[in-house]
Computed example of a mutant assay.
Amino acid sequence: MTLPDVDPARLEAEWAEDKQVLASLAANGDRAEIVRPVDVSFRGDDEALDRLEDDAGELGFEVIEREEDEDGEMSLFLGCEQTADEAAIRALTLKCLQIELIYDVEYDGWGCTAEDGQTN
């Protein structure tokens, strides 16, 4: 699958938000090089989310769940295993913005827990 070019201004806007999340993780003792589950979410209509859900594996994700919010808007949550260093998160964000263009969905961000390397 050929992934489309993303508007550089959009990527930079998302990256500015990503850096805030990464700073918060670091403030909570995160070791960014540790591989962990990372989830991403997309909003859209059922047809678009169905197509994305069907292709999730080909895109490197596992389907976590689909959820309806209080306004009736549907979101699809996908997950992958990766580090949370700047390069990996920037690449993830770029891929998600490309998915947004291909599937006519709205990328709604990523999330993960801080990992300090200690067992619970």
Rank of each mutant, 00 (worst) to 15 (best):
L49F: 07
V21D: 03
R10L: 15
D69M: 06
G79N: 13
R43G: 13
D39T: 15
D108K: 04
G117W: 10
A16R: 13
G109Q: 01
D54H: 11
F61R: 00
D39V: 14
E17R: 11
A13R: 15
E53H: 12
A48T: 01
E14C: 14
V21I: 14
I102T: 02
K95I: 07
A48Y: 00
E47H: 04
I102D: 04
E12T: 09
A114I: 12
K19E: 15
D116I: 05
E12Q: 15
A56L: 11
E62I: 04
T93I: 02
E81K: 06
F77D: 03
Y103T: 03
I89A: 01
I34C: 08
E33Y: 11
D116M: 10
L22H: 04
G111I: 00
R31Q: 15
E62Q: 00
I89D: 02
E58Q: 08
E33G: 11
E62D: 08
L52N: 02
L11P: 08
F77C: 01
E58Y: 00
G117T: 07
C112I: 05
G79H: 13
Q20P: 00
L76P: 05
W110Q: 03
L3T: 12
C96Y: 00
R51G: 02
G44V: 06
E86Y: 07
R31G: 07
E33F: 14
Q82M: 08
A87D: 08
C96P: 00
P8W: 14
L76N: 01
A16T: 10
E17S: 12
Y107E: 01
V35T: 14
I102N: 01
D85T: 11
T83E: 00
D18P: 05
I99S: 03
D7G: 01
D104T: 10
D104L: 04
E17P: 02
C96R: 07
I34V: 13
L49H: 00
D116W: 05
Y103C: 05
D18L: 12
F61C: 05
S41P: 03
W15A: 13
D69L: 04
Q98R: 15
D69S: 11
D30C: 09
D55Q: 14
D45N: 12
L22E: 13
R43N: 09
D46Y: 05
A32I: 11
L11K: 10
T2A: 14
F42R: 02
L49E: 06
L92Y: 00
D69Q: 14
G60M: 04
C96L: 10
A91I: 09
W15Y: 10
A88Q: 09
L76T: 03
T93R: 00
G29N: 13
I102S: 04
A26C: 08
R66Y: 07
A87W: 03
L11C: 12
E86L: 10
